[in-house]
């Protein structure tokens, strides 16, 4: 198979299936990643709070969840989510997309909780002491002094988590939920041109993650320049 054939095949495939790759595939991949990171951040914040809480059983519970999530393959977690979520919610129709999203959110929350916890704990203790010495209570100190500074540590890392998720969600194609990797499986099945489809999908993934990484880098530099 020559280089020219591959190139012309790619052009042909893109001419015919661009919609499946660029709109449907990219759309669902971005949507799934965004949902995962957004809800993962919310759940991850709760996990982080639980980890720093003064109630030991709460800390243990979250630590167990986090360690299990980090110590097992994400694909396995997706399988478990795929089969378990619909059974946990028998009273409603749960789509495959939802089941997979739930599994991804829990996976992401485990990692994000670490990002948030370390972001908060990286804020100098003197800041808390200064705020408390003025008479602010614990909550006010967290909200007005610690979190605004922690956000600078957390947001860039959260952006990188989004980039990671764009790649991780490709595993969701195992369940044909329509993401970019599912587009690959579908088009390859119809054209029997595996390598060409792989190159196309790889290029799209790369452009997505590379662009996003650069944007995050820019944003990070802007945050730093404010100090």
């Amino acid at each position: 198979m020559s280089f020219e054939t591959i190139c012309s095949n790619i052009v042909k495939i893109m001419g015919e299936y661009w919609y499946i790759f660029l709109v449907k595939g990219v759309g669902i991949t971005l949507l799934l990643s965004a949902i995962t990171v957004a809800f993962g951040a919310i759940l991850g914040s709760l996990f982080a709070l639980a980890k720093m809480s003064r109630i030991p059983p709460l800390r243990w519970l979250v630590n167990i969840i986090v360690e299990v999530v980090r110590g097992t393959p994400i694909l396995l977690q997706l399988y478990i989510g795929y089969f378990i979520v619909p059974q946990l919610l028998p009273f409603m129709e749960v789509s495959d997309f939802t089941s997979i999203a739930v599994a991804l959110v829990i996976n992401s929350a485990a990692y994000v909780s670490e990002i948030i916890r370390s972001g908060i704990q990286a804020v100098d203790r003197g800041q808390t002491e200064a705020a408390r010495s003025l008479g602010l209570n614990g909550g006010q100190t967290m909200l007005r002094v610690v979190l605004p500074q922690a956000v600078k540590n957390i947001l860039p890392a959260l952006g990188n988590e989004f980039v990671t998720m764009i790649k991780e969600t490709s595993l969701a194609s195992t369940f044909y939920i329509g993401d970019l990797m599912t587009s690959y499986l579908a088009v390859k099945g119809r054209t029997y041109l595996a390598l060409e489809c792989q190159l196309i999908v790889g290029a799209i993934y790369f452009v997505l993650t590379f662009t996003l990484s650069k944007l995050i880098g820019l944003y990070e530099r802007r945050l730093k320049s404010h100090d």
């Binding site: 003197g126 705020a131 500074q149």
Partner: peptide
């Protein structure tokens, strides 16, 4: 204690001003 701390100003060795 927060009420009492409001009555007791404190200045630290490392300033601890709020950078944000």
């Amino acid at each position: 204690i927060n009420k009492h701390r409001q009555k007791m100003g404190m200045v630290f060795q490392l300033f601890n001003v709020f950078p944000h």
